[in-house]
Each structure stands twice: as structure tokens, then as C-alpha cells.
Amino acid sequence: MWTLGLLRNELGTTLRRWRTLALLGVLAAVPVLVGIAIRIETSDGSSAGGGGGEGPAFIAQITNNGLFLVFTALAATLPFFLPMAVGVVAGDAIAGEANAGTLRYLLVAPAGRTRLLLTKYATTLAFCLVATLVVAASALVVGALLFPLGELTTISGTRISFGEGLLRALLIALVVAASLIGVAALGLFVSTLTNSGIAAMATTVGLLITVQILDQIPQLHALQPYFFSHYWLSFADLMRDPVYWDDLVRNLGLQALYAAVFGSAAWARFTAKDITA
């Protein structure tokens, strides 16, 4: 019960921080910008993305169905905005407390380091979910305001009802949130290595960018399936009919592996660390 109290406390502190609110605000603004841009671009009747299939996934369908704005917004934010926000929160988790000199007070409470670490990780994961849902919800509202809604065509060419489309949108949001598990674990591990919150955030975001660049280099294709970002866009497979599960399963397995490796590394580091601040 005490753990739940700690978790609630942590959640409250994290989500009430100005920094977190600003991050969520930026994330919520992305679908608004995308939606307005498409609305203006297509006001003369032309199709979005130049009609040649360029731009983020699903962008060509938005004008016909606002629900597609949810998918486009997630596809646009997943490569960078979302993991960056998660990297900031995760990097700050331990190092930020150490930086502010509050870490030892947290440890004075009889909760134990392992439990504190788990609480911090759970808070970061909760933020992953909240951030994704903020993007999805904002995109849904903007999509509904600017574009028509209704039955939609899957990318396989079959039709599904709007209700099922909404269900799939929710599922996609959950998968996108789960795609961030690996970055969150990585950020938490980095956070245990240093006493400077800024250094931990910068390192995490730097790693994120590095991995994204390496994922584009064809010579490294043997390694790429093990990069945490490699299967991120597989969430689009949920819009096939029938759903193509292979890459989705691989993505979730990879995230679980990253969580296990870097979670346990963070534990090994944090429980053995001298806390001086």
C-alpha cells in the first residue's frame, strides 16, 4: 500500500511539473498544426502529400476521414517528439532528484531503493501512455472539427465501421505507448549513472538520435533489427485487414528485452550506488 502511495505521489509530482505540462502542450500542438496545414493545402481540392505517397503515413486519407489524422499524428510524433519527451522525463527520474538534493530524503523513507526505482519506472511508463493519448486525443478532436468522419477504408482496401476504426485507433495508441518502453528503460539507466539531470536527458535524447540515424544506414542492416526504434512504425500494420502481426510482435518483444536489460542494469547501478546528494 505504501508503494501505491509513493507511486501516486510521484505521478502527481511528475505530471504537475511545468516542464511536463509544456512537453504535453507541444505534443498536443503537433496534430493541430498538421491538421490545419492539410486543411489549407487541400482547400483547392488537391490531395494531401502531393498525391504521390509522400509525407508521413496515412496523410493522403486525412481529407476523407478525420480519424486518419490520429494515425498521421502518431506516425509524425513517434520518431522524435514522443521519445524525446519520454527521454526528458526518464533522464530526470533519478538524476534530477540527485541534482536537486532530494534523492537522499526519498531514500530515508523505508521504501528501499528497488521499490523507488520501480516507482520511477512506472511513473515514466505512465507518462509514455499519457503523452501518446494526448497526441491521439488532440488529433481526434482536430480531425473531427476539420474533416468528415465515418466509415473508413483500411490500407488493405477493405471497409470498417467508424466504431471499429476508433477501436483500432485506441489499439494503435496503446502500441505506440508500448513502443516507448525501451527508451524509457534506457533513459532510466542513464539517469542512474549521473547526478546531473540535464546530462542524463541530453544523453538519452542523443542516444535516441544516434540510433535513429544508424537505423537509416543500409550497411548496418544486420544490426538494425535490434535497434529499439527499428519496428516503431509497425503500428501501421494494425490498419491492415487482416492485421499483420509479425512486426508488431517483434516490436513488443524488443521493447520487453530493452526493459529487461536496461531495467536490470539500472537496478544494478542504483542499488549499489553511493548516494551523496
Binding site: G49, G53, T153, I155, S156, G157, L233, A236
Partner: peptide, 24 residues
């Protein structure tokens, strides 16, 4: 199956459709 898109050729009775979801 493409990245986040799909190209389908559907033959149903007398009709043949091809759909490119990337460019709609």
C-alpha cells in the same frame, strides 16, 4: 505490403480494382 502502406489488386467477379493506399 509496404511500410505503413499497402498495394492491393482485387479481382471480384467482373471487376478488377487496384488500390494504392500510400497515394490513395
Amino acid at each position: 505490403l509496404d511500410k505503413a502502406a499497402e498495394y492491393s489488386v482485387i479481382h471480384n467477379g467482373d471487376e478488377v480494382w487496384a488500390y494504392d493506399s500510400a497515394s490513395n
